[in-house]
Every structure is written in C-alpha cells, then in structure tokens.
C-alpha cells in the first residue's frame, strides 16, 4: 500500500510504524523455524548460540548431531565407513528405521486418501449431488475433531477389531486424517471447471473412464497432487494416533522426536528438525508451483 503524496506527517510516521510492526510479526512467524538450522550445527550439546558460534569460529560448528542420527542404534558405529557400515546403518540405525516406517505409512495412507478423496470430490462438485452439505461436513470432520478424540476412538475400535499394533491400522487412520485436505484442494480446483469439456469428450464418443483420464484428470492434477502432498505431510507429522494404537517397535519420525523431546532433548532433535524444515520448504515450493500452474490452466491469472 503506497502512501499518497499528500499524506500528513502523522500518517507518514504511522505508516512507517505499521511497516515495522508487520516486519516484526513476519519475524515472529519465521524466526522460530529458521533458528533451528544454525543451532543444529552446534559443536556443544547446548540449545543456544555459544560464543564461538557467534564469532563464526569454524571450530564451534560441527555435523556431529547429524552423524548421531546415522549411528544411533547401530551395532558397530565405530567401524570404518565402508559398505558394511552403511548396511549396518540402514538395518539398525533407529532414526533410519523410523524414517522408513514413516515413509511407508505416509505413502500408503496418501494413496488411499488421494484415490478415495479425488473420486468423492468429483461427486461432491456435481450440482446434482444429494445431501451435499451434510456429507461434506462428515468428510471434513476428521480435520476439525481434536486428534486426541480421534485417537481415543480408534484405540477402542482397534482393540476390539484386532487392528491395533498393525501397519494397516495406522495407515487407515492416517488416510482418514488426510482425506479432508484432499477433498478441500480437489474441490477448490473443480470450482470453475468447465464441464462442457467433458460433454464435448462424451459427444465425440469417449467412454466415461477415457474422459476422466484424458480430459478431467490432467486439468485437476495440480489440485490432486497438492492434496496428496497435504495428506502425506499430515501422516508424516502425526504422532498422537501412533502413540495410541501402534506397537512399541513401530517407531515413526514424529514418535521418535516426541520421545526424544520428553525424555532427554538433545541437539540431535534439532538436526532432525532441520531436515524436516528442508522437506517442508521443498513441499511448499512444489505446491506453490502447482497452484500457479493450475491457475494458468484454468485461466484464472494473467501469467
């Protein structure tokens, strides 16, 4: 908001103050996320900048906490770093195992959430859909209902049905939590979707599935991918349900972090946090690019 040339001194001062206030709020938003990055390279087991770090002394920085992520839980962490060492790390390092579990659970729950969610969003965005509002409210509710209530319910349900302590149980639960995000992003892409395109395809003799795969899907794909990424992040970041229904040996990254924070917080947590921040930056960039592409495809923005 540019200030007009006829603004009074008071207005100029206020405008400047407003900009400073906004800058401070933006700092409040972003600083806590970025602060963990330099701190994760701390050579000392502290959570603050040591004097050496402030003087940019290279000695005060190290990658020891990242190294700890690899070696923690290994059988022979001191062995020379050859192929055997790496396979030992791959097999036994706790954080690597947690990451493997998180990726497997995240992948399958995303698959379920995206497939079912996209299909449902197609139905929901049809004007003739019956009970649209009520059904939408039910499908979005996993996002609104506090996670502790969902986890409590799943705990009772799974202990009766035998899904407790199983990967299938966690995947189903995480898929449920991711579904609202898929529905929201895909229905948002379907707003303003030109239905005459599908009618044109049908009138040219395409079967409904052919129409879906070669006309509808390419157009809504950015929304579907954004939704899938949201669903993946939801699963990748979820800890409460896992704490309630997973077995002891089913560690995931957030669960391992949770334990680490509650028991003995070490800078190793900060190095995990840094890696997660980098992942979230990558995901955000992807989603932003997709959103712009989608707007361009649908002719909503000039460039």
């Amino acid at each position: 908001m540019a200030l007009p040339t006829h603004a009074s001194t008071l207005e100029r001062v206020w405008h400047r103050a407003y900009q400073v206030i906004c800058a401070l709020i933006f700092l409040f938003l972003i600083a806590p996320i970025l602060i963990v990055i330099p701190l994760s390279f701390n050579a000392e087991p502290y959570f603050t900048f040591t004097e050496g770090m402030l003087k940019l002394d290279p000695e005060a920085y190290s990658t020891r906490w990242y190294d700890l992520l690899l070696t923690f839980g290994m059988q022979a962490p001191e062995a020379p770093r050859d192929g055997n060492w790496w396979s030992d790390a791959w097999e036994n390092a706790q954080w690597i195992n947690a990451a493997k579990n998180s990726v497997i659970i995240g992948f399958f729950s995303t698959l379920v959430a995206t497939a079912l969610g996209t299909l449902a969003a197609l139905g929901l965005s049809r004007p003739e859909m019956p009970f649209r509002r009520a059904i939408m409210a039910v499908l979005i509710s996993p996002m609104i209902v506090p996670i502790i209530i969902t986890a409590t319910g799943l705990f009772f349900f799974y202990s009766k049905t035998g899904l407790a302590n199983s990967y299938a149980g966690i995947i189903l639960a995480h898929a449920t939590l991711g579904i609202p995000f898929v529905i929201i992003t895909v229905t948002a892409t379907l707003v303003g979707f030109d239905h005459s395109l599908t009618r044109a395809a049908a009138s040219l003799g395409a079967s409904p599935s052919k129409t879906f795969f070669s006309i509808t899907l390419p157009l809504i794909l950015p929304g579907v991918i954004s939704g899938a990424l949201f669903a993946f992040v939801t699963s990748f970041d979820e800890v409460v349900v896992v704490l309630f229904i997973a077995a002891h040996d089913q560690q995931t990254i957030p669960r391992q972090m949770w334990n680490g924070i509650r028991e003995q917080i070490s800078p190793a947590i900060l190095s995990v946090a840094t890696l997660l921040v980098i992942i979230s930056i990558a995901l955000l960039t992807t989603v932003e690019l997709l959103r712009r592409r989608s707007e361009r495809l649908r002719g909503l923005s000039p460039g």
């Binding site: 970041d237 972090m257 946090a273 979230s280």
Partner: peptide
C-alpha cells in the same frame, strides 16, 4: 513466510519454541 510455518511439522515448531 506465512505458508512455511503452516507446512512445517508441528513437532518442529514446538521444539523450536522450546529451544
């Protein structure tokens, strides 16, 4: 700057505040 916190893990943000 608004969306990055939104995409960052809740545990990461909580850890940052602890730090």
């Amino acid at each position: 700057l608004v969306l990055l916190p939104f995409w960052t893990s809740l545990l990461v943000r909580t850890t940052s505040w602890m730090v």
